[in-house]
């Protein structure tokens, strides 16, 4: 292994070599799966909660008022504080789910709510005149307007969920997670490991983002073909 002179910086070659070695290690895929499942779970929970509550807030102003202090708090409290608070409150293995959720929810909620509020008032007036039911209005009038807001929010939230989720695993030294590998790389000065795992995280994050955005676009495309 490249411990020795290559502590501060490692050559790309050493990182690549370490990466290929990692792929053949017994616990590589289980580690990747462990972190990915939790971060993805947090992401989808945040997405679902953000969407539902934004729709509710768009319909009932009181919901927006009630949620406002929570959303502002989540947005402005440093993620490290949340991680440490969660370590005290929650089971260590589910930490990344919660932290990923906290990163995603406010971004999705705020953006979608903004999308709902920027809906064309002339279309809404038309719908009111023709006595269109609320569910149809949501589908035909609000949803297409939400599209671009949701896609950009997802894109931002996906990156954040990976960064914060892994950070939580590092701080919590969550057993069996990618974060734990990073932590070990740090305490044993395995710089090539650190870089190799970082490459893995970036790749996972990019692939996950592509997959989610593809799915979101696909869903909206299908709607339009009705």
């Amino acid at each position: 292994m490249a411990v020795g002179i290559e502590i501060l910086l490692v050559s790309p070659l050493a990182v690549a070599a370490r990466l290929f070695a990692l792929l053949r290690e017994a616990d590589f895929w289980s580690t990747v799966l462990f972190s990915m499942l939790r971060i993805a779970a947090g992401f989808f929970l945040g997405l679902a909660a953000g969407l539902l509550l934004a729709v509710a807030a768009g319909r009932f102003g009181a919901v927006e008022t009630l949620l406002w202090p929570f959303v502002v708090t989540i947005k402005s409290v440093p993620v490290a504080s949340f991680i440490i608070i969660s370590l005290i409150w929650l089971s260590n293995s589910q930490l990344a789910v919660f932290i990923s959720f906290l990163m995603v929810f406010p971004v999705i909620y705020s953006n979608v709510l903004q999308g709902i509020k920027s809906t064309d008032p002339q279309l809404l007036e038309m719908a009111a005149l023709y006595r269109v039911k609320w569910r149809r209005k949501l589908f035909y009038i609000y949803l297409p307007g939400i599209r671009s807001y949701l896609i950009s929010a997802c894109s931002v939230a996906l990156g954040m969920s990976w960064k914060a989720g892994i950070a939580a695993e590092v701080i919590g030294v969550v057993r069996g997670s990618i974060g734990e590998k990073l932590y070990e790389a740090k305490i044993y000065f395995m710089t090539s490991d650190l870089f190799a795992w970082t490459v893995v995280i970036v790749l996972l994050s990019v692939l996950f983002e592509k997959a989610v955005l593809f799915a979101v676009r696909g869903i909206f495309g299908r709607l339009a073909r009705r």
Binding site: Q122, L123, E125, M126, A127, Y130, V132, R136, Y140, I141, P144, L223, A224, R225, R226
Partner: peptide
């Protein structure tokens, strides 16, 4: 209306179904 006020992302039939 003086403007069309149609749901641009949907078919003509869907715009009729809406009302």
């Amino acid at each position: 209306f003086q403007e069309d006020r149609l749901c641009m992302d949907f078919s003509a039939a869907a715009n009729i179904r809406l009302v």
